[in-house]
Design a protein around this nucleic acid. Structure first.
Lengths: 145, 145
DNA sequence: TATTGTTATACTCTATAACTATA
DNA sequence: TATAGTTATAGAGTATAACAATA
């Protein structure tokens, strides 16, 4: 083999993602939740009235595992499950006033995290990284049932 | 927030790593093990007589969780735990003849995997990706106890 | 006193299957 | 018959704490 272990993309990706995810976990721990909670709030904020499964694809979480995630946000009174009058099987998700008020603070946390990332990268590398990661994601369509 | 959710590096990294890792899992499943098993074999091959914890840092696995991983390789008679005469606390890991014979086949699997990755990337992008992932990894020293 | 390997255990994540209510 | 949400549970992966042997 021509490649040394430390250049294998699989392991490198694993370590990089562990590092970045760990920083994100620390970022949102003070608020009592994980990066997915923040991402869920952002989606509901941009798509008021969306149904739970709309979050599934964006977050890579199955509908059964979404339930608990949303439960936790409901418990903290940050989002609400309202009735969808057009299709009563689904819930219409909305941010509460409390959730809306909390978002800017969470955004600052996210920005601080992104700042730490940016400090590791040269100018323009962030965009390159995003493009490359998108390409890698194509290796496998994650089908979130 | 100026960023759309799909450009957040944290989630993108998560999805990319899930995709690549999934492909790696499929790659080594026919042999009855996971990517870490292959990585461990490669390390022992390049550092005959190394001790178990030498694998820890390279694989990001704690010494307690390494035990089972190595157990599995020993069960398949691919590596051997020999006595380290200089320090009898540690084991000296060696590939068995069977393990050595299996490596080329595993390497072909790994190369097929890398080929699938390469088909997603333009010329030279793989090297850029490796450099960027290394930088991101610096965000957090994973201390494998 | 510190280190290597080991064991046992707890905890988190994710996956799966079955159920209900609606469509 | 299919879909949205829910529940319960199993499994994998990881983390933690204690122990024996050796240094």
């Amino acid at each position: 083999m021509q490649h040394s272990l430390s250049s294998q993309i699989g392991l490198l990706l694993r370590f990089a993602q562990a590092a970045v995810w760990g920083d994100l976990l620390d970022t949102f721990k003070p608020f009592g939740f994980r990066p997915q909670h923040y991402a869920a709030l952002k989606i509901v904020d941009s798509k008021p009235g969306c149904k739970q499964q709309d979050l599934g694809g964006a977050l890579g979480i199955s509908r059964s595992n979404l339930v608990m995630l949303i439960d936790e946000l409901v418990e903290q009174k940050l989002i609400e499950r309202r009735q969808n009058l057009e299709d009563r099987r689904s819930n219409a998700l909305h941010l509460s006033a409390r959730g809306r008020a909390l978002l800017p603070e969470l955004d600052r946390g996210q920005q601080a995290h992104e700042g730490r990332l940016a400090s590791l990268l040269e100018e323009g590398e962030q965009e390159i990284l995003v493009a490359l990661l998108r390409k890698l994601g194509k290796l496998r369509k994650l089908d979130v049932t």
